[in-house]
Design a protein around this nucleic acid. Sequence first.
DNA 1: TTCTAGTCAATAGA
DNA 2: TCTATTGACTAGAA
Length: 844
Amino acid sequence: MNSGVKKESSTSQHQTPPAAVAPQAVVSQLNGFFPPPVSSLAPAALVPPAHHPAAALFFSPHLPPLLPPTHFGSIAPALLHDHLLRPPTPPTSVPSTAPPPSQSPPNDALDTADVAQKIREILSTHNIGQRLFAKHVLGLSQGTVSELLSKPKHWDKLTEKGRESYRKMHAWAASEKNVVELKAISPKKGSSPMMSNYRSEDAATEERIQKILSEAHHAMQAKHSQEKEQWNRSIVSSIYEQELAKLGENGKITNGVNSLSGQQYDAGEFTEQLVQRIYQEQLEKMIAHARKSGNVAQLNMYQAELLKVAQQVHAKGNSPHEDNKENLTDTKDEPTDLSIKKKEETLADSSPAERQSAFSIVRPESCQSNDSSSHNAMSPLQRMQNIANSLMNKGPNQGGTGGRPLKAVLPPITQEQFDKYSHIGTDELVKCVKETLSQFSISQRLFGENILGLSQGSVSDLLARPKPWHMLTQKGREPFIRMQMFLEDTESISKLVASQYRVPPEKLLRGSMGDEPPPPPPPPPPPQSTSSPAESDYRQSSSSVADSELDTLAITSKVKEVLTANNLGQKLFGEAILGLSQGSVSELLSKPKPWSMLSHKGREPFIKMHMWLQDPAKFDRLRLYQSETPAGKNSRKRKHQSAIISSNSNCCDNSASSSDNQKRPRVFFTEQQKETLRNAYASDPYPSQNVIENLANQLNVGQKTIVNWFHNHRMRAKQQQHSVSSPASSVSSSARTAAVDSDDAPSPASTASSSAGALTRPLNDAAQWLFPDFMPVKAEKAEEEEEIDEESSNMNVTVTKSNKRKAAKPKRVYERAEPERNGESWDDEDDVGSTSGLTVVAAC
DNA sequence: TTCTAGTCAATAGA
DNA sequence: TCTATTGACTAGAA
């Protein structure tokens, strides 16, 4: 299949004559010259109507600026470039920008990492965008090239098609001329890409193409700028007309404009006032919209902007829109934002330094600059465009109800800032940033969109693979400077957390693990009571718990002990204490991950367990819950609570019901099907699409089911390795050991740490999971089975049941003998260790 | 777009 | 009726 693709591509590259592609190429290439027309020029409210000339320019089917490369039809972008920049002669004469695949022998292995590194350096050094490189050299998308460059696969693991890309890169990088050529066609250069200094043997053809391109380019540029200007004028005048008409109807000029009545003022001054008023009104509308949609970030931004405008007007002696103050301060209906009031103060009298703070960049651009001249230089209309732009980018309803957070309009980095941050250790910086984000539960998306002005994917990339400072262009350094500013402004962290989560940071249970200075004081928490009393109690005290490392194994052991000793079910415990389902509780208790391997979210149940264990009234809580929950309706109750806890009952109720309705019925694989899947997994835990399709067909299930199975299988294999690792039974057996041990001198109120002390090995180290006391445990387990059967404690009965069941399926004992798992379950407690270990166990 | 981590919930098995 | 299992799903990250 791959070869087929390759063949086709290769063939088309050499068969399509330049003359045939030239006209289309002219247009297509020109498309790349123009900036993203609408997004950068048109705010949401100002998008030209379809019939508008500007729209015709931007959206004309004849001038498809937004067409992806594939819209060149059968002509690949690289091919297009080839034909434009290179004569259709054998590639030996002139180094081509996109070397044909045939240049490298098919089996000529390349060091892909080296090639990728080299390409990255070249692109970086010459400030050539991946998009451009991808399009013209490889004929791939930017994202694909990014992958190729950042995560080069080993040559042996590449398909022929995959190798082709690296061959192209390798060949391309071999000649500096290629680099120069590509650099020359970069739109940033401001010159026509088609004016690159290549020399063609087919001079006439090339000259003709150049001429066409040049003329078309200039013509379109002229048209473009003219229409853009006209378009802007028409929009502004259109708004003016509307406003003037309004004024005429009302017979008066309101607000700011009103103050002008009776005065002698020129048209320019009036215009300014009018624009200002329009701007204010637009802001008010946006405020209303943001408030309606519950988007606090937007609300804050618009309010801040409105306040600023009002202050400016006021400073000029006007008092337009006094009623705006309502919008500026009326946040009592807004349950979310914790920093609105503070922000108002900040905005009202913030110092330049404050305005320069990292967090200030979540405010609109006009609010940011500490350079009043530059701020004033931006017209209200421009500022409105900025805000509208951000609106357009985000779309409505982005509050806490699942929409995307607001993307900030970031101020440019000033020269002073560039000077100040003349060097940044990017590695260290991203490390700090990652820690901060993790510590405060700030998502990459939130951080990227509000602080860096980048998408989550970009943030991920920056944080995962920061370039050395010296390899960064000025533009590339900007996000790092913003990160640095963010870290230096401690207040910004709290504000960001608060604005995003609508909860106090401590509620997130994500404190540092002890090796970091305490975070800046969080903003005042909102008086939300969205959770059950027990929930809030635990939340309050759990923040201190979160600061320490918990011994998950000891905790779960103790919990199991207490539950069984008191005949409390996992279901009740899960619903009343953890807010989890019985199945989840079962998994947590039987296969606890070590603390260090848990995500912040994953730690929360353990923190809750720990708090519960320490709670003298822990049984009262359960009884209370039990009494409040009629038998048979537990599940409903739990759902209801979850809905409440999630602080958005409508959302969750709806989603729950809808997901219930939409959730596909569970598939139950037969043993034969499982065997097939296991075999496939053994061959490749990450099956290709083809394999998935084949399996789906073979097993007569949906592809999604196959994908889910592999996902689950991988996760559970990993979980198995982590928690039970070598031996699945290590944890639960250890847990049993602990339970049994503690049975000797059980203390119902004993804490997790005391349980930990009862264990025979240190537990505050992840190594405990790597070198578990497995074999003795197995032996011990066998003995336990004997002993426990005779015991009557609830706990032991439970354990015995489990062990009995496992013992009834001896084949599972051998499941882990083969790394690829021929056994039934990854999760099975007996799904353990190695063959040798099991042999010993059997001997025992 | 895909992967991971976490979770739900239907079902199996004791 | 309890716990364990496991396919399905979601959010966040890569």
